[in-house]
């Protein structure tokens, strides 16, 4: 994990953080948003009637650069938005695409909904599990892949389908798995 810019350091002088002492009290000192992350979050806030609406966007911004959302990130985001960190935590744990623990470099979202179920989801999932030695919700020992189930990907005409990072793949046979995964190092 990259540590951030010394420019912002550990000082907390922003308006938002002053207004949010409760959240700040539990702050972990080893986490600081980068300037870029902070700017992106502040930009996001401008699109809504109040800053709270940017909470999901802010979590996604942090996750995009760091892969997951740590405790420190939750508190840092609450500082920027000026809302309690418990609210950010509530949101972070609700949404399935926000990761509150480290994930692999590549995240496999395998669709387990009805059309893919009918066209070979079980076999596809088993082939991935066998190839990687992990089950749903697990990460490979080399931190390369995390395997997660996902709601209908809207690719029912290409089932069974899955996404790896931002790429959609389907229809897939169990025999396709090995070559497909090799493309993600």
């Amino acid at each position: 994990m990259t540590m951030d810019t010394p420019a912002t350091g550990n000082t907390r002088t922003s308006k938002a953080s002053q207004g949010n002492l409760i959240a700040s009290a539990g702050r972990l000192n080893d986490f600081e948003l980068t300037d870029e992350e902070r700017h992106e979050i502040e930009h996001e806030m401008g699109h809504y009637e109040n800053p709270r609406a940017a909470s999901i966007g802010a979590l996604k911004i942090v996750q995009k650069s760091r892969g997951w959302v740590s405790d420190g990130a939750v508190i840092a985001i609450s500082d920027v938005l000026g809302i309690p960190s418990s609210d950010i935590e509530g949101v972070a744990t609700f949404y399935s695409l926000i990761f509150r623990q480290p994930v692999g470099r590549h995240v496999i979202l395998v669709c387990d909904s009805s059309s893919c179920f009918l066209t070979g989801y079980d076999e596809l999932r088993d082939a991935i599990s066998k190839e990687l030695g992990i089950g749903l919700g697990q990460t490979t020992g080399d931190d390369r892949f995390t395997l997660l189930p996902v709601c209908c990907l809207g690719a029912c005409d290409r089932g069974p389908a899955l996404m790896i990072d931002e790429d959609l793949h389907g229809p897939l046979e169990p025999g396709d798995v090995s070559a497909l995964l090799e493309r993600y190092t």
Binding site: C151, C152, G154, D157
Partner: peptide
């Protein structure tokens, strides 16, 4: 937020 199982039209 198209997620209804079996639905791929809005995409």
């Amino acid at each position: 937020d198209e997620m209804e199982p079996g639905t791929f039209k809005d995409r």
